[in-house]
Structure formats: C-alpha cells, structure tokens
Design a protein around this nucleic acid. Structure first.
Length: 274
DNA sequence: CTAATTCCCTGGAAGC
DNA sequence: TGCTTCCAGGGAATTA
C-alpha cells in the first residue's frame, strides 16, 4: 500500500529512465481505474518528459513541446498500484493497465484493485482540485511542531486519524501513522487536541525519521508494492507495531493490542503508548 | 466549517 | 478441493 516512502521510491526509480525523454507511444488496457483515463494516446506522443516530481502520493510528469509547458500527467497508485520500468516487448502481466513508452523503454503501471488514477491537466498543479487543498509535505520545514500544535488544538479526533488526514499532512497512511505513534509513545486513540506540545515535538521528529528510514530501505512491501525493477521494499522487516498485534512489544514485552480507530485497524502497546 | 459513514475494487487468507 | 466470507486500503462523496 503505497504511502509516501513507496511513492518516493517509485519516483527515484523511474525518473532516471524517463527524464528528458520523448514519449513515443501509450497503451491503455483498462479504460477506467478509479476514474476514466483521459485520451492520452492522442495527447502524449511527441511530448517530452521535462521532469518528474512527487506531491503527496501523486507522481507528476511535467510534459513539454519545443521547451514550452503543455501539461502534467498525474499518476496516483491508490492502494495496490505500482509502476515499473520494462522493455516495450516484455510480457504483459495481469493487471498491467497502462504503458507509457519512450522508444524501447516503457513505464508500466500495474494496479490489481484499481484504486489508482491516471489524469491529465494543463493547469498549474497548485490549482488542481486534488492538490490544492493538501497539507504540507511531512519532510518539509512547514511540517513542524508549531504547525502541528495549532492544527491539533482545533480538532477533536483521535491523533491517528488526524495524522492520516491529507489536509493536516500528506503521505502518512496506516502503516507510518501506526509506527510513528508507537515510537512517540502516544496512544493512537488519544484526542489530538489533548496532547502536549512537548509530546507533539517528539511526534514530529519520529515521523520524519520513520519516513526517511523507510525511503532508504525502498519502502514497505506487504502485498503489492514493488520498485521500478520489480523488487520489493524492505521496511516491513523493521515494523515494530503495525500488524504485530498478539506479539510482544519490543520495548517492554507487553502483548500488543489493536482496535478499530476511524474504521482502520490500529495496533499499539498498552504500556508504552498513553 | 467538522466529523462520521459509505463506497469503490479485487486478491489472498481464513473458515467450513 | 472448492466454495463463501472477510479484510486490506486512500480518499471522494454523502450525510448529519
């Protein structure tokens, strides 16, 4: 399930193969993922991929023609999507829904559950409706304790749901919210407005560390995530609390429990997290 | 505005 | 073996 580290891993894997290249062909095998895919066969060929960036969990392919900006291809991996670099001629696997080729090199998107999205916009990315209301990037300076404290005190939801809210901070899903709260010693069900500034300082620090560590290990592969080679990430071997219910806490040996918070399973150590 | 709930979709695991 | 049931998940849409 791609969260920020998995999308960042995808970006870093794919970008060197595609940056500066001209798109030669497009194949759409499944016309609709989360939404209908726009008529990219007619739009993209001949355009140059000027650069690829990530915002939240969106991959952004900036396309130009004769050095002039034309539009941005937006790819969201949903919960089961992945992109990889293949040869054009490589056999198509089940759920390979989309190809973008530059000569022999092909960006191929696979998405079994089809919660992903492929979109096209000519507008500046900041005004796109999916992007314009997003909170700050967690690895940026905008995401700091003063910001988090001011946001948290005007909301009344559990801290875990708060962290997973895109308007608060982007890119943090169930895995990294769960891990960060364990490392910060905060119970996932605690109301966000009821946490001291000191504890939120710790939380900001561990969120940044967990995300960076995961990026360095190529992300977390639980079911569907693979990098641009088709290799899995390795962060799942470092998971201390996510999915560990019933096992012993690595810090205090207490049995790890879990409960539903905001319709998501949330594991926690009842002794270490208050 | 916030918060709570439902829905989209399918593979894999568990239960019988 | 083969069925049925449940669960995972981001985030948009809907409702209160």
């Amino acid at each position: 399930m791609p969260e920020l580290p998995e999308v960042e891993t995808s970006l870093r894997g794919v970008s060197p193969h595609l940056k500066g290249k001209t798109i030669t062909s497009v194949i759409i095998r499944k016309p609709k993922l989360r939404w209908k895919i726009p008529p990219l066969k007619r739009i993209l060929p001949g355009l140059k991929i000027e650069k690829i960036e990530r915002r939240a969990k969106y991959l952004l392919f900036y396309c130009t023609k004769d050095k002039t900006h034309v539009g941005i291809l937006i790819i969201h991996l949903g919960m089961s999507g992945s992109v990889r670099i293949t040869k054009n001629t490589a056999p198509v696997k089940k759920h390979d829904h989309f190809d973008l080729a530059t000569g022999n090199i092909c960006l191929r998107m696979c998405d079994p559950r089809r919660f992903g999205a492929i979109l096209w916009t000519k507008d500046p990315i900041e005004i796109h409706p999916l992007i314009s209301n997003l909170g700050p990037e967690p690895l940026s300076r905008l995401f700091n304790v003063n910001y988090l404290f001011s946001q948290a005190k005007r909301r009344s939801i559990p801290i875990k749901q708060f962290l997973m809210d895109n308007k608060v901070v982007v890119g943090i899903g169930n895995i990294y919210a769960t891990e960060s709260l364990f490392l910060a010693g905060i119970h996932p069900g605690r109301l966000c407005s009821n946490i001291s500034k000191k504890r939120l300082t710790k939380l900001v620090t561990v969120i940044k560390k967990v995300l960076k560590d995961a990026i360095n290990l190529g992300g977390t592969t639980l079911r569907d995530f693979y990098d641009e080679d088709g290799s899995p990430g390795h962060f799942q071997q470092k998971l201390l609390i996510y999915g560990q219910q019933g096992k012993k806490c690595s810090k205090c040996n207490t049995t790890i429990k879990y409960k539903l918070i905001g319709q998501r399973t949330s594991s926690y150590c009842p002794k270490c997290q208050k």
